[in-house]
Design a protein around this nucleic acid. Structure first.
Length: 276
DNA sequence: CGCGCAACCTGTCTGC
DNA sequence: TGCAGACAGGTTGCGC
């Protein structure tokens, strides 16, 4: 579910509601959500802080606090972050924790599969180090170029799809947008990265941006669990070119989309349009 | 270092 | 209907 467009959709909705608000209480209903911190320690650390901004890096939320620390969250597979204008409306199903705000609203984290995380990172420098260790360039930043992608693929025999899923190469792409971008670029997902030409890397860079932009415009893809900050489904799943479309016609040639397995993930592509 | 894969969890769907 | 097994959008750590 939550790849860059889904996280960005929520971030855009939350930013105006959270910025300038003070956290009046924090409830942790699943200790795993904040581990290795303790629920009490997590709650005490955040209570009284003001949220300065709602940022994003890759698939991570980065809520900057007034003391320079950041509250960093990740939805992993099935997490949802819901904005509730009335704190009393906090959902009970799969609730992992909630922040109560001085506006009377609440931010609730739900997650059936319990992979999602929340943690406080003490300083801007520590946040930079945290992301630098895990994430490559943002797909829309100037330093993510076809040239860079070409350089990063040299001597790499891993399938290009596996490389796109590696967050240190480029941040924010997951299984959905990897399939969609590779189709747009006409590249087979199992193609060895080192075999891509410079022109293909240029095309792939553009295809990644186009796929992510389309996803953001559609307010994300809701295959199953994903909801935006107001509990509403996205619509990008209705525009998928190949992902989850096994046996359905390829929008490029009309031939059947095939399902295979690449990098351990369910992978969808068109054998005719993706020969590169 | 590069790569593949299991593990972390729960829910849902498929096939017998 | 019941049940075992496969599979699901992500990330990390381990073994080779």
């Amino acid at each position: 579910m939550p790849e860059l467009p889904e996280v960005e959709t929520i971030r855009r909705q939350l930013a105006p509601m959270l910025e300038g608000r003070r956290i009046t209480n924090v409830v942790v209903t699943d200790p795993r959500w904040v581990a290795p911190a303790s629920p009490r320690g997590f709650s005490n650390r955040l209570t009284g802080s003001r949220i300065e901004s709602a940022g994003r890096r890759g698939k991570y939320f980065d809520f900057l606090l007034d003391d320079g620390a950041s509250l960093v969250m990740h939805l992993r597979m099935t997490g949802n972050l819901l904005y509730l204008s009335e704190a009393s409306a906090t959902p009970s199903a799969h609730l992992r924790g909630a922040l109560l705000l001085d506006s009377g609203a609440a931010l609730a984290f739900t997650d059936p599969r319990r992979f999602g995380t929340a943690e406080v990172i003490a300083s801007p420098e520590a946040v930079d180090a945290y992301f630098a260790a895990r994430l490559g360039p943002e797909p829309f930043d100037d330093d993510f170029t076809g040239e860079r992608l070409h350089r990063d693929t040299r001597n790499r025999k891993t399938p290009i799809k596996a490389l796109l899923l590696d967050q240190r190469r480029v941040a924010g792409i997951g299984n959905i947008y990897a399939d969609e971008a590779l189709h747009r670029a006409g590249i087979a997902p199992h193609r060895r990265a080192a075999r891509l030409t410079r022109a293909q890397c240029d095309a792939l860079r553009d295809a990644i941006r186009d796929s992510l932009t389309a996803g953001i415009d559609a307010k994300g893809a809701s295959i199953d669990d994903f909801r935006d900050a107001y509990g509403v489904q996205g619509s990008f799943q209705d525009q998928f070119l190949v992902h989850r479309r096994e046996g359905l016609p390829c929008p490029g040639c009309g031939g059947p989309v095939v399902k295979t397995r690449v990098a351990g993930r369910g992978t969808y592509f068109c054998k005719t349009c993706q020969r590169g």
